[in-house]
């Protein structure tokens, strides 16, 4: 089967600018089907920029390179088309939507994606069953389902709500941008369990994180160090432990010499 050998996501020589400043300076990355990749790196290294470029946010201008997702040119697609194609971005800072009911939002999103794929809308009963089960899985209180999206949610509740959306939308590729930041150890564990429950041979993950801590709960297939807009080193989970021990300095030094 050649299909399994073709990566789900293929990034080649990606350069991107934000406000005219080059933040990504030649990224190469392949993510295979079912793989979990962790991207680590110091502040300001371009981790969040990479996640926004993948999701198609305005103001993040790609100046060179290409991104193929299941063979399709991702850079030509609107954010909503990417969502329909199966890309999901879990936000570092989930956005509040005043006046928009959480459940309504989920339902609209699921049905928008289904319509875009030419599928029938999800019926109310199936939806309710799924949402209740998913909320339980990520430890989100039922009352929060009835509230407006992220309005008045604690930091941990917002992150759980992101994972809930992910569980409902069932993406092919989930990019989680610092989902672990600002969480206590119990919340971290619940969220990691939520992610692990969604791991499958058909679903890939990119975990963007500062710390090795998350990777104790979600064991990655590959670990990449992103710094100064490039991937400086890739390895397996041992690399994360090495970073935990030594910090990023030695890698940056190596880069400066090279």
């Amino acid at each position: 089967m050649t299909e399994t050998k073709t990566p789900m996501l293929s990034i080649r020589n990606l350069h991107a600018t934000v406000d005219g400043k080059e933040v990504l300076r030649g990224i190469d990355l392949d993510v295979g089907r079912g793989e979990v990749h962790a991207i680590m790196g110091p502040n300001g290294s371009g981790k969040s920029t990479l996640s926004y470029v993948l999701a198609g946010r305005e103001g993040y201008e790609v100046t060179a390179g290409e991104i193929l997702f299941e063979g399709r040119n991702l850079l030509e697609m609107d954010p909503e088309e990417r969502a329909a194609a199966g890309i999901f971005l879990g936000f570092q800072y989930p956005v509040e939507l005043p006046g928009v009911n959480n459940m309504t939002f989920l339902r609209e999103a699921i049905n928008a994606v289904r319509r875009a794929r030419g599928e029938a809308e999800m019926d109310a009963v199936t939806f309710m069953k799924k949402v209740k089960a998913a909320a339980k899985q990520v430890g989100l209180k039922d009352t929060l389902l009835k509230r407006n999206v992220n309005v008045g949610f604690s930091g941990g509740e917002k992150k759980r709500n992101e994972i809930l959306q992910m569980a409902m939308l069932e993406p092919k590729l989930a990019i989680l941008d610092e989902t672990d930041s600002g969480l206590d150890i119990d919340a971290l564990r619940v969220i990691a369990e939520g992610v692990n429950a969604l791991r499958s041979p058909e679903r890939s993950f990119i975990l963007i994180t500062h710390y090795q801590r998350l990777l104790e709960y979600i064991v990655p297939d590959r670990v990449h160090v992103l710094a100064q807009g490039r991937i400086l080193r890739s390895g397996d989970k041992a690399l994360a432990l090495e970073l935990e021990e030594k910090g990023y300095g030695w890698l940056l030094g190596e880069e400066a010499v090279a």
């Binding site: 198609g56 954010p79 909503e80 990417r82 005043p98 609209e108 928008a112 875009a116 939308l169």
Partner: peptide, 23 residues
């Protein structure tokens, strides 16, 4: 807010309409 909605699959028009009607 618009990007957040779009990243979940909603068109920009639907996102504006949803947010304004919610308001």
């Amino acid at each position: 807010q618009l990007f957040y909605c779009r990243s979940r699959g909603l068109s920009e028009e639907d996102a504006v309409s949803m947010l304004v009607n919610g308001f």
